[in-house]
Computed example of a mutant assay.
Amino acid sequence: MASIAQLHLTSDRYFAALAVAECRALHSFFDQHIVEDRELGYFALDEGDYNALPAHLAARVVHTVHGAMLDEF
């Protein structure tokens, strides 16, 4: 039963990180990445915090929400 509880907790963390990424993306020029972490589960990462994602983070990206702001005007 512990594995079922862990799976539920992990999916909750993923969907929480997804909600944060989607909210941030609405107000950002930068992509928002969901990164898998052994200790934290999942967390949202703003691409604007880095010039290019370091390889150790890029390898753990499981989903990307594209920034919704356009710089065309």
Rank of each mutant, 00 (worst) to 15 (best):
R60M: 05
H56Q: 13
F29M: 10
L53Y: 01
A55M: 08
A17I: 02
A68I: 01
Y14I: 03
H63I: 08
H66A: 14
L70R: 15
L45H: 02
L26V: 08
R38E: 15
L70M: 11
D31P: 09
L40F: 12
V35Q: 09
F73V: 04
D31Y: 04
A5K: 11
A44M: 14
V35T: 03
T64V: 10
H8W: 07
A21P: 01
H63V: 01
Q32W: 06
C23S: 09
A19R: 07
L9M: 02
H8P: 00
D12Y: 04
R24C: 01
L45A: 06
E39H: 03
A59G: 06
H66R: 15
S3I: 14
D37H: 14
A58P: 03
Y50I: 03
A16C: 00
V20A: 01
C23A: 12
Y50H: 06
F73E: 00
A5W: 09
E72R: 15
Y14F: 11
L9G: 02
F15V: 05
A25E: 03
I4T: 02
D71T: 15
S11C: 03
M1V: 12
A5D: 01
E36F: 08
D31M: 05
Y42P: 01
H33Y: 13
D37A: 11
R13V: 04
E39C: 01
L70A: 05
E22L: 12
P54E: 14
A55D: 14
G41N: 08
V20F: 09
G41T: 07
A55I: 00
A68D: 00
A44P: 02
G41L: 12
E47L: 10
V35H: 06
R38D: 13
D46C: 09
A21C: 04
Q32L: 04
D71W: 15
L7E: 13
I4G: 00
L18V: 04
